[in-house]
Deep mutational scan, measured.
Amino acid sequence: DYEVGESVTVMDGPFATLPATISEVNAEQQKLKVLVSIFGRETPVELTFGQVSKI
């Protein structure tokens, strides 16, 4: 299970290999909103559970 505030690594898509912090969890739809730090700015990205891995 994923929790808000948890650190994960993006495994898929254009942000693969980047660390991210979970900002929202939708367990019903198996989706997460995460904040990816790009060029010093936090960018919100919506991903599925399968696109991230716990650190």
Rank of each mutant, 00 (worst) to 15 (best):
D1R: 12
D1W: 14
D1P: 14
D1N: 13
Y2M: 04
Y2F: 14
E3N: 11
E3V: 14
V4N: 04
V4H: 04
V4Y: 04
V4R: 06
V4K: 06
G5I: 01
G5E: 03
G5S: 03
G5P: 01
E6Q: 12
S7I: 15
V8Q: 01
V8M: 02
V8D: 01
V8F: 02
T9I: 15
T9D: 04
V10F: 03
M11Q: 07
D12A: 13
D12H: 13
D12R: 09
D12N: 10
D12V: 15
G13F: 03
G13W: 03
G13D: 02
P14K: 07
P14A: 07
P14W: 07
P14C: 09
F15P: 00
A16T: 07
T17D: 09
T17R: 12
L18H: 10
L18W: 14
L18E: 05
L18R: 09
P19Y: 14
P19T: 15
P19A: 13
P19K: 15
A20C: 07
A20D: 00
A20T: 02
A20F: 03
T21D: 03
T21G: 02
T21A: 05
T21Y: 09
T21Q: 08
T21R: 12
I22K: 00
I22M: 01
I22V: 11
I22H: 00
S23A: 13
S23G: 06
S23D: 06
E24R: 06
V25L: 06
N26R: 07
N26D: 12
N26C: 11
A27V: 14
A27P: 10
A27F: 15
A27T: 12
E28D: 11
E28Y: 10
E28A: 13
E28K: 11
E28T: 10
Q29R: 10
Q29G: 09
Q30A: 08
Q30V: 04
K31G: 04
K31R: 12
K31V: 11
L32K: 00
L32C: 05
K33F: 08
V34S: 01
V34E: 00
V34K: 00
V34M: 03
V34L: 08
L35A: 05
L35F: 09
L35K: 07
L35N: 08
L35E: 04
L35H: 07
V36S: 01
V36P: 02
V36G: 01
V36A: 03
S37I: 15
I38D: 05
I38E: 06
I38V: 11
F39V: 06
F39L: 11
F39E: 11
F39Q: 10
F39Y: 10
G40N: 07
G40Y: 04
G40S: 04
G40L: 04
R41G: 09
R41I: 14
R41Q: 11
R41N: 10
E42H: 08
E42K: 08
E42N: 09
T43D: 06
P44M: 15
P44R: 11
P44G: 09
V45D: 02
V45Q: 05
V45L: 12
E46V: 09
E46K: 04
E46L: 08
E46I: 10
E46F: 09
E46Y: 11
E46Q: 07
L47P: 00
L47A: 03
L47S: 01
F49E: 02
F49T: 03
F49S: 02
F49I: 04
F49K: 02
G50K: 12
G50M: 12
G50V: 09
G50W: 14
G50Q: 12
G50P: 06
Q51M: 08
Q51P: 01
Q51W: 04
Q51G: 05
Q51H: 04
V52I: 07
V52C: 04
V52K: 00
S53L: 09
S53V: 11
S53C: 12
S53G: 08
S53T: 11
K54Q: 05
K54M: 05
K54Y: 06
K54V: 05
K54F: 05
I55W: 10
